[in-house]
Design a protein around this nucleic acid. Sequence first.
RNA 1: GGCCAGUUGGUGAAGUGGCUUAACACACUGCCCUUUCACGGCAGCAUUCACGAGUUCGAAUCUCGUACUGGUCACCA
Length: 561
Amino acid sequence: MNIIKLVIFMTNKELADIMFPNVKHDIEYYENLYPERNLKEGAVVSRFAPSPTGFVHMGSLLAAFIERKVPKQTGGVFFLRIEDTDGKRTVENGIGGIIADLKAFHIDIDEGVISETESKGEYGPYIQSERKEIYETYAKYLVEQGLAYPCFCTPEEIEEIRSVQEKKKDRIGYYGRWAKCKYLSNEERIERIKNGEKFIVRLNSPGNFDNKVVLNDLVRGRIEMPENDMDIVLIKSDGLPLYHFAHVIDDHLMRTTHVLRGEEWIPSTPCHLQLFKIFGWKAPKYAHLGLVMKIGEDGARRKLSKRKDPEAAVSFYHEKGIPVEAVKYYLMTIANSNFEAWWDQNKDKTYDDFTFDFKKMSLSGSLFDLEKLLNISKNYISTMKAEELYDELVTYTEEFDSEFHQILKNDKDYALKVLNIEREKKKPRKDYAMYSDIRKYSWYMFDELFEKEEKTYDFQNINDKDEIKNIVNEYFTNYYDENDDHETWFNKMKELAKKLGYADNMKDYKENPDNYKGNITDIATVIRVAITTQAQTPDLYEILQVLGKDSILKRIEKEYY
RNA sequence: GGCCAGUUGGUGAAGUGGCUUAACACACUGCCCUUUCACGGCAGCAUUCACGAGUUCGAAUCUCGUACUGGUCACCA
């Protein structure tokens, strides 16, 4: 009996050698190369591990945001790993796009890929395609242990198995008695390899579908699932590993403690847990996040899609000029809805000071609410200082509105005055949700724009041309004085109203509307529209002050005299 | 079809057996304030927590079943 065992063991070793002729090290080598991290108790090591498909998706950004936050909270490490084991997914400059997006959102990494060609940190390489030898070493070890084997099945054969399974209503997959290559003798395997037959490497799964395995998910709690009994592929015919294998090897070697990923990964977790167990490693803690959803064209919920939904791409926010901070605040409210209330109590603090908790995450995928984001953005922008807003706006327009950019640069002091209207006070104005709104709502404050825009004047209640002329004329010849303070200015408006037969306060007007031609708001509106063309603007007094006498009179002369 | 998860208002959600005649925020509606708009203030907006049954003195909260939604079952991640 002992002798037979020995023979089998020897052949496994021989098989492994012939399958992996290029492997130089044993697994001990890598275990020593990437030692346990020396971190304090409770420190979380997590990672953002995207495929280089171009840009970062909203859902991924949420994950990356949390993956960054938790290590920061616990004194751990956050690193970026690129999962490029599938050539078909890889896009030109995919890595650069991801790095740029993370940078744009100020998500800094402690370790990992920092450019198309560079990485930092002691646990690399951080690009999976550069880790081929490592995967082979571990696959070889598994073959030696009899826990993996070469599979010679062609795609056609796999398809054949599948259709028989479907017909018989059996579970689909390569497992148990369906796994043809599982039962080949080592002699045959070696011979076929020597004959030059192509093969892939499959796990010889020790699992039993009737046994249960428990996943203690950080956000969902206990999930019980059948053990994995699929002989999943470990190494593909291109020599690179499949996600399942790569994830287990990498996250062990990189000493990852927490894995955050979408809930679509839950079904394959038993397989990952099994791999960790086979190797005798401690599995990381898993947090499976709900997907970010959106209401589709047909009215049904569906996953926010990179291809169909512009708002899924982070570039969307960049182009609109939605502050990255606002997006991050929104992400924080999605991640932990109690954040909003906390923030309300801690206005002077930021999301960095807030303690994120996995247990407070919503289980089901949340609908992406652009409206809500815009509201957060509005509030955020309203708290910015004029100087700060100016800098952001200059940066924004440099890329997206060169004309406005030039105007802002030409007269910074004036631009600051405009931006400061009803700002930097206890109850600041909240009308800009994105930087692209600023020109839209304040173009009339800039003479260069005012002169060139096509203008339409809507005087609201008063439509009689002579009456409009009369009001404007009267105001600017007899009342307007740029040196008036707010109170004086307003008193003059009242006098003007009274003189022309309008009520100078709303109360009187409401009591006896028939006694008046209108009320003071009508007068104010006429002046407002005459100067700006807009019926809705910030405080009229401030506007007149900022615009200044010269520009105002020029506008009046042109249009009314 | 198998396996898994989810289901509280238009939206995000709080809620872990009695303090819930279900917080809070966004949106919406009305009123007030007001030189317009925005801000701000007040009020309204789920007689009810997918449905059914059970446990209990008592359930949105525990159990079971049903329905629906989503995920997954690749040499993709």
